[in-house]
Amino acid sequence: MPHDHHAGTALSVGHEDRDLAERLSKGPDAYDFAATGTSLADQGALSVRAVGGAGGLVGGLTARTWGGLRGVGMLWVREDSRRGGWGGRLLQAAEEEARRRGCDRACVSSFTFRAPDFHRRHGYAETGRTPGIPGGAEDVRLFKRLVQGVARRASRGARPRPGPPGRSRAAPVRTGRARDGRRGRRAPRRAPWLPGPR
Rank of each mutant, 00 (worst) to 15 (best):
D32G: 01
V77H: 01
V72G: 01
G85V: 08
A54V: 00
R152P: 00
P116W: 01
E79A: 13
G27N: 15
A50S: 12
T38F: 02
P162S: 13
D180V: 03
L57Y: 01
P165M: 06
V48P: 03
H122E: 03
V48S: 04
D117M: 10
G176I: 01
S12I: 12
G27V: 14
V58Q: 00
H3Y: 11
P165L: 08
V51L: 08
L90V: 01
G166K: 10
A7Q: 14
A50V: 05
G8S: 06
R159Q: 11
R161I: 01
A137N: 12
R100W: 04
V13N: 09
F143L: 15
P116Q: 12
L91I: 05
F143G: 06
P195R: 08
G157R: 11
L24H: 06
R177A: 09
E79P: 04
R174D: 06
L46F: 02
E96G: 08
P197H: 10
D19E: 14
F33N: 15
R156K: 08
A63I: 02
A35M: 07
L146G: 07
R198E: 07
T38S: 13
F111E: 09
G53C: 00
T38V: 05
R167I: 07
Q148R: 14
R78P: 00
G59C: 03
R198Q: 09
G8L: 07
Q92P: 00
E79R: 11
G68S: 14
R121D: 07
G181K: 03
R156E: 15
S168W: 11
G123V: 10
E96F: 03
I133S: 12
D117A: 14
G149T: 09
F113G: 14
R189D: 04
Y31W: 15
G157L: 09
S81W: 04
T127C: 12
A171P: 01
G85H: 06
M1Q: 07
S168N: 06
P28I: 05
A50R: 05
R182I: 00
A158M: 13
P131I: 05
R114I: 11
G102W: 02
P197A: 15
D17H: 14
M1I: 09
E95W: 04
R189N: 03
A170W: 11
P131Y: 05
A54D: 07
L69F: 02
R169N: 14
G59K: 04
H5V: 14
V173Q: 08
E126C: 10
A137E: 13
E138G: 01
G84F: 03
G14E: 08
P197G: 11
L20F: 12
V48D: 02
R198C: 07
R105T: 07
G85M: 07
T36M: 07
R89K: 14
E138Q: 14
G56V: 02
L24I: 10
L46G: 00
V173F: 12
E97N: 07
E79I: 02
A158L: 15
L91D: 06
L11F: 15
G37E: 08
E126R: 13
L69Y: 02
S12D: 09
M74N: 15
G14R: 13
G157H: 07
A170C: 12
P165H: 06
F111G: 13
T130P: 00
Y31G: 14
D180S: 06
P172S: 13
T62F: 04
A93K: 12
V173H: 15
V108C: 05
R179Q: 15
D104F: 04
P131L: 04
R82P: 02
A7S: 15
R186D: 06
T9E: 10
F33W: 12
L11T: 15
E138K: 05
R152C: 02
